[in-house]
Every structure is written in C-alpha cells, then in structure tokens.
C-alpha cells in the first residue's frame, strides 16, 4: 500500500468519504510475513499477524483489510488464538475490503451516487486465492464461486461476465523466485478471460493486480501476440462511476494503461 499498490491505497482513500465511510489506518501495523512466513516458520506465521490483532483489539473497531494476504493471516491468527484460549481474541469483525464495501447498505448508497454508469465495460471479476480460501479460516460461504464483485459491477452498470477462473491462483508467492511459473498461470488467466469475452479484469488484491498488470508486456512477447487487458482495482471503478476527480490519476499508475479502453467506451 505504501509502495507498488499506492494506486489501490489512493483509490480506497478516495472513495470511502463518498460512501460516508471513515477509515482509520491501524496504528503501528507491521507486516504479517505473508507466504514467506508460513513457508519457513509456522510459529512466525502466527505471531507476526497476532501483533496486529492485538493492535486491532486496542483500536476497538472492525478491521477492514484491503490485502488478501493480510486478511488471510489475520484470520488465521484469530482462529489460532480461539483454539488456544477458547475465546475470541477480538470482539469486532475482520473483513476483507471487498466484502465490507459490498454490504447491501453500501451498494444502495453507491447506486444512488453513480454519475457515470460504466455501460458497455465487459469485465471479469478476479478474486484470487486468499480472500476466499481456506473457508475454515476466511469464514466465507461462497469460496468456490464468490459473487460480490459481480454484484458491485452490476450496480456500477458494467457488464460482469461469468468465467471459471475467478478464484484460480496467480502465483503471488512465487513472483520473485519463479516468474516463469507465474507467467504460465497468468497467461492462462488472460486466455480464459478473453475466451469469456472480457476486455479487462477487476481485482481486490494488490498481488493479483501486480501479477496481471506488470507481466503483460513480458507475456505478450513470449506468446507472440499482444494482450491488452487492463487490471482495475474495484475501488478505482467505484471512483470512476461516482465521478471522483482523481480517477484518471490512479489509473495512470498502471503499467497496462486502462485509459484507451475507457476512452473507447466513452467513459473517460
């Protein structure tokens, strides 16, 4: 959020006041260790997020998490603490940001505030892995076929398309060490999205965004064909539809420039 996902952070900060939502950053948060921690040390993979859990308890508010990995590890730490102590460590709820912002009340507010309907924008929702799986940790019910991104896109009057790869893996944990494996996984996602008739992805995880966005040029070269599939954060599309003036600025930070597509659809 402070680095490669600066565009995600800016769009979250941009749209929340439009939904009469006030978000406060969890003070003094630290990194949960992500896949590196649970791969190398079981203990570390619980103790790092447990620290954030402690901070959240002090803050006394619901925890809304924009990063799928952070969400997953926080929930894992919560479950572990429940197992150890027999009681819940937090009397508030841990949300993943997409779930939080697609609660019926927010969708109703949003519907009233759509000033620029995203008509004609054909998109596939891509949820990735860790916001959904494993359900024993995430407490999700529709983990194989989540629907809230599609619900959101419908409210924004875009055209969400059905496809079978919405929770397939982009290989985030291997990005650094085995980009070749990531390329295979991501190319599969491009091809399946195109087969579904999509012209863009909508994501809720900055690792998914990074993998789909940053490797598009490289994969195009390998494949010998030009892929053009912009990768939007769902919050960016909310901002676009509500007419947030910074939207173009957020979008200018993507490597695959979404502006030509939006211009073509008359949305920018």
């Amino acid at each position: 959020m402070e680095g490669t996902a600066a565009d995600y952070a800016a769009s979250i900060a941009g749209v929340s006041p439009l939904l009469d939502l006030e978000l406060a950053e969890l003070e003094d948060w630290s990194c949960c260790g992500a896949s590196a921690a649970h791969s190398l040390s079981h203990r570390l993979s619980y103790e790092l997020p447990a620290r954030n859990l402690g901070l959240a308890k002090k803050a006394g508010l619901d925890v809304v998490v924009p990063c799928a990995l952070c969400f997953n590890r926080l929930k894992a730490a919560e479950k572990e603490a429940e197992k150890e102590t027999g009681q819940t460590p937090l009397d508030k709820k841990i949300w993943d940001l997409l779930d939080f912002l697609t609660q019926p009340s927010f969708l109703q507010t949003l519907a009233k505030k759509v000033r620029r309907p995203l008509k004609g924008l054909k998109a596939v929702g891509y949820y990735g892995c860790l916001a959904s799986r494993p359900p024993a940790i995430t407490d999700k019910l529709d983990y194989e076929n989540p629907q809230n991104m599609e619900k959101l896109l419908t409210v924004l009057q875009a055209e969400p398309l059905d496809w079978s790869y919405k929770t397939d893996c982009c290989g985030a944990g291997l990005t650094l060490a085995r980009p070749d494996l990531v390329d295979t996984l991501v190319r599969r996602l491009y091809d399946r999205a195109l087969a579904a008739g999509a012209e863009c992805f909508v994501v809720s995880c900055q690792m998914c965004q990074a993998n789909l966005d940053m490797s598009q040029e490289r994969i195009s070269k390998q494949a010998g064909k030009k892929y053009y599939l912009p990768v939007f954060y769902f919050t960016e599309l909310m901002g676009l539809a509500m007419g947030h003036t910074d939207t173009a600025k957020w979008l200018s930070r993507h490597l695959v420039d979404p502006r030509p597509l939006l211009q073509k659809r008359g949305l920018l």
């Binding site: 402070e2 680095g3 490669t4 996902a5 600066a6 565009d7 003094d28 948060w29 630290s30 190398l40 040390s41 203990r43 570390l44 103790e47 790092l48 620290r51 940053m214 200018s252 930070r253 993507h254 490597l255």
Partner: peptide
C-alpha cells in the same frame, strides 16, 4: 514503476513496535 510513483525508494517508516518484531523473530528462531 518508478515513473508511475509505485516504487518507494527510501526505507519504510520505523514502527514503535520494532522491539516486539525483533523478539517475535527471535522466539521463532528465524
């Protein structure tokens, strides 16, 4: 990424819980 201001060049902010982080790592033996 740099041109698009998506790379932070400086160090991340030092948090107050720095000491806690060190002990968590020590306990885990990593």
């Amino acid at each position: 990424l740099f041109k698009r201001r998506r790379l932070r060049l400086g160090r991340p902010p030092v948090i107050k819980g720095k000491g806690e982080i060190q002990s968590i790592f020590q306990r885990a033996g990593v």
